[in-house]
Structures are given as structure tokens and as C-alpha cells.
Design a protein around this nucleic acid. Sequence first.
DNA 1: TTGAAAGCGCTAACAC
DNA 2: GTGTTAGCGCTTTCAA
Lengths: 357, 357
Amino acid sequence: MPPAQRHPTMADVAERAGVSTSTVSRTLRGLSTVSPAVRDRVEEAARELNFAVSRQAASLVTGRTGTMAVLVPTLSSWFMGSALSSLAPVLRAAGMELNVYMVGDLAERAAFFERLPARRNADALLVFCFDLTDEETARLDDLGMPVIYVSQHVEGRPSVYVDDVAGACKATRHLINLGHRRIAFAHTSGVRGFSFSSGERLLGYRQALTEAGMPVDDELIVTTPPRDKVGTRRAVGNLLSLREPPTAIFAEHDELAILILSTLRTVRIEVPERISVLGFDDQLMAEWLDLSTVAQSPSDIGRAAAELAFDLIDDPEAGRGRHVVLPTHLIPRGTTSPPSAPPGERPADGPAEARDA
Amino acid sequence: MPPAQRHPTMADVAERAGVSTSTVSRTLRGLSTVSPAVRDRVEEAARELNFAVSRQAASLVTGRTGTMAVLVPTLSSWFMGSALSSLAPVLRAAGMELNVYMVGDLAERAAFFERLPARRNADALLVFCFDLTDEETARLDDLGMPVIYVSQHVEGRPSVYVDDVAGACKATRHLINLGHRRIAFAHTSGVRGFSFSSGERLLGYRQALTEAGMPVDDELIVTTPPRDKVGTRRAVGNLLSLREPPTAIFAEHDELAILILSTLRTVRIEVPERISVLGFDDQLMAEWLDLSTVAQSPSDIGRAAAELAFDLIDDPEAGRGRHVVLPTHLIPRGTTSPPSAPPGERPADGPAEARDA
DNA sequence: TTGAAAGCGCTAACAC
DNA sequence: GTGTTAGCGCTTTCAA
């Protein structure tokens, strides 16, 4: 199988411009040690021949590939889509290519860490949303390139992530401040080893309750497989069938919150009158559905990760254990409100007193 | 700036195994002309040294990069996420890397076609969702690698796409069959030059109406910027303020349909009792919100594109103008129903007679 | 079945 | 400023 077509080489350009390949190389890399006249001739020749430098050949000698690799669990999630969409322009501005390794299940994962295909093929690796074992981390340590951990923190390694604990804490406090006393936490079980911050957010939930002197009731913590309509109904059902059902549900992420909303709508339980619902992420759909939520910015995460990677490429020792922690913000919308007084109890008796803005 | 770390080379492996680099190369590529004993020694040496072949060096001599490039307008849409998520495993199985060029606006687009950074850096290019000008297509023609057009058809070039006209036709016919006579079409304006099949779907809508002997009323065709809550409200408002408002709205895609649903809910117009809403795509959210829609499969598109690309890499002449057209399916759910009889008209008088399953 | 040698297209060090 | 030279790490003849 021959290559589709022969590309012109630097030698072709050099010949056409009547100079040496070194001069062509210097010109095309924008080095200032080329006289304007020669520069013009070379650039014209290159344009006429439709010449493009072979990154392969260049990187063979420079030792740099001009490529950023990213390891991601999926490409079809709001988070990854947003993060990569913001990453791309930053890379492009730096003249780097984007190489995606999507590793969706445990088998692929094993294969990836076994072969480490990114080795020698990128200048840095961004690892998104993986709960790595110690062996996996160690494996990445001798990948021979800077590795940045995104959406997770790994001790002693450069990481970029949002403060999930604080975010979940804010969320829960908002509900407490509204007067809720029975607050449920719903989260997705997720594939083992693929971190979507579930644990941290549960931590924040617990922390806020404890701070407020409220008990943590395990019955109020429910789990469902991700993106599972039936599973979510069951989880919501577990809450609705409690002796003392919650007046508010904090969902680990907007996707789940939306599924919960649609379940509640099916049985005509009014939101927020009967039950408040609060999400986490602030994806576009949250605004559309008027869902109260905690905003995080995957775009900022993507950009921060890129910047950190650039620093580390230039100086691998620059940020051994540098951590970039990004903030979250509560966005109150229409799905949270003070709880209505329980039946048989006069409003004045209830704990329902909004202290929130 | 030195590379982070020196990688072992084939020479290192060769020395350790006591053979020549040629033998190492042959072994690692799985050529059968290596004796088992030697093969074992080489493989062990490679493993011990954590050796990985440099694609750069290899492709310099083979002329193949082992990389598939994709040109996409965004990474944060349901369509692109799904398509790329299905593409990735196929590439991985073929031992190819995935290189993403995200070109989001017209400036970036001009730069991309000016420099064609994919040139020499990939074995094939998949162009997603771009409405290309003739010059742009011509430019890609001498990129020196197979180019596959995805989600669009370009004359005489290999393409993969769904039959949008037929899909929109099915959608509209479903509404007609339910008894609707005033059927609106809502679509997004989109950025010029980035095709999201808007035009084709409008065509299908018109075609179905014409087939049924119904007039095409331009007042019933409304436009809004994509993902724009306010713009969508205005568009819906235009429909609701007509002398004779529609009893059904067919939206160009689910995202828009959802925005329309949320607008209708705000003003308490019941769906489907008062107005039926029908989408296009069948993304996950459609199922969650019980939205009737026309299903397409970006995953199938991604896989088909990859297969076509492989064929063309092996034999560039294989499919000059091969077109893969994928089907769509109507998924009736809870947001479409026969129209209720208009006020002041007895049910028997109205055109509302369900002929649909 | 294996090894020696040439060279893929480029950059970097050093002359001039 | 510009050209010459020597590789970068592989694969691929070709000989043995």
C-alpha cells in the first residue's frame, strides 16, 4: 500500500527557492536570522508547492511531538465535551495537536496501562476523571512526560479540580437555610474506578448537615446507576416511601436531578412546593429547566489544565505537586424553595423559615 | 528545554537481546520470519526496558502515521460526543490514534484551511458537519490523504450521513396521520457554514405536507439561534400569536424541542393535549422527558465513517464517491397525540381523527 | 532466519 | 545570514 500521494519535502522547497534546507527550516520556524529577501522567496516557494512540515521528521530530531494527549473515560458527557471544547483552542493557539485516548471500560483500561500508547507520542498527558490505583499512577510516573490529573487530586502530582466538597456543602447549606430538615442525597453508582466526584460531594453533604447539628440519616442517601430511568425511579421511590420522606433532594449532578424531576412530575409531586430539587454542574439544560444547582466550569478546568501542562513541558520540575482548585457557585433557581408546612401542623409551628436570599 | 526523560530505543532492546535492530523491528511488528527463541528474548528485553516504538520514526520511513484526524465544529454536542465515542474503540482496535481538530468559528476555519495542519500528520481525515465551500472541498482534495465527509454529502466524495429528508418526512407524516392540520416547523439558524441538517429537515417537512395536499404556510416556520432560551420563547410566541396557531410543532432537533417544551410549560399550555411536540435525534434526554422524536444513530455514523476510512487508506481509489446513508426511525412517545377539537367545534366536525398506530 | 547499510525528512552545531 | 554535515529512531532492501 503506497501512501496516497507524495508530499513535497523541504528539499523541494529549498531547490525552488534556491537556498539550502536549513534556510527553509529557519524561515518556516520563524527564526529571525533570515534576511527578508530570502524569507520571501522561501515562503512563496512553500506556498506554491503547498508544503507542510512533517511533524514526524521534526519531532524525531527535536524530541518534541507538538501533541497533547488526553485520557478520558468518555466523550459523550457534558463535562468532557465542555472541557475539551475549551481545551482545543488553547492548544491550537500554542500550535499543538490534540490526541484523544478514550478508555471506556476496565478491559480497555488494562490495555492502556499495559501498553501506554501515549508514550513517545505526546509532550504531556492530561488524565481526566479516573480514580487511579497506585500501580496505575506509578505507571504514569515513568511515562517520560508530564502528567496532569484533572478532576481528581493525586498526592504529589500536578492536579486541577473543583472543590467538590465545598460545592456540595454550599448546596446542602442552601437547603438547610431554606428551612429543610429532611434532605436527601442522591448519587449514581458509576463504574468502579471512574471518578465523577461522587464521594467528595457526599462528604460535603454530610459536612453541612453535621455543621448544622443535623443527623445524617442513611435512609436519605440513595444510589442509582447513571443515566438509568428505572433505577432513578426506584431510588426516588425509596425516598417517597419513607415514614418521613425528604422535603428536598440534592442530586450529585444535574443529569440525575433532571431524571428525578421527571420522575416527580410523573406522579404529580410539585417541585418545589412539595419537594425541592437541587443539582450540581449547571449545564445548559439546568437553566432551561429552571433547575437550582451548583455551578462548576469545565471550561475553566480545561484551560487551567492546558496552562499547567505548558508550564510542565517547559520545565518538568516546575510544579511537581501544584494543585489548581477551582471554585463552585450556588445558582438558586425555581426548583428550590422553603418547605411547605407539613399537613396537620400550622405554618408557624414548622421549621420552615427562609433564611436564604 | 530537554525532553523530560530519555526513552529507550530499539538499539537498546537489540543490545539487551543480543540481536540486531532489524530483528527487534521484525519481532515487534509481528512478522513471522523470526525464530521463536529469538522472539522471546526480544519481547522480554522490550518489556524489561519498557520500550515503546516511536511512531514518529516509524512513520518517517513507512509513510503512514497511524493516526486518524477528525475535523469537528464542537465537542460539546450530543451528536459529536456520541459519534466520537463510538469512533474511538474502532480506531483503537485498528491500532490507530485519534487526532481532533476542533474548528469552532469562521476565523479558526479560515486558518485551518489555509494551513491544513492535518497534512502529513494523519492517514485519513473525517470531516464532520461542515457545509464546505467549493474552494474548501478542493483544498481538501489535495490534502494527500483520503477525506470522508460525515453528516453531509459532497458530490463525488465518500460520505456518511443519515437521510434527514426522509426522517423529517416521517416526523411530519406522523403528525398529519394523527390528524394535525396546522403543523409548525421550528429550526435553529446556526452559524453559517456549519451544517446541522437544518435545510434537509425543512425539505422533508415541506415534502410531507405537499404529499398530503396540505399548504406550506410560511408563518408556521420559525427560526431561533441555537441553545437560546429567549430566542426560543420569541419563536414560540410567534406561533402562539397567530390567528390560527399550530396544534403541533416539529422541532429540528431534540435540544430545541426540549426548550420549546419548557416554554410551553411556563405558560401552562398542556403537551400533548393542546400542542403536540416532536423532536429529532433521540438523545437520552428525549427518553427521560418522554419526548416523541425521530431517532438517528451518531454511533452508527461514527463506526461507518471509520470503516469507510480504513477502506480508503488501504486503497484510495476504493470508494471515490461511495455514500453510506443511514436510516431514521420515528419513536412515538408522550408528547404527540391527536389534536383536541378546537373550541366551538364539535369533535365530529374537526379533522382530528387518529390514523396512526 | 538474521544482520549490515541506506535513508525517510527534518533540525542543530558548526563553519564560513 | 547561509550552507555543510551529522544524526534523530526507525524500516527496508539486500546479502549472508
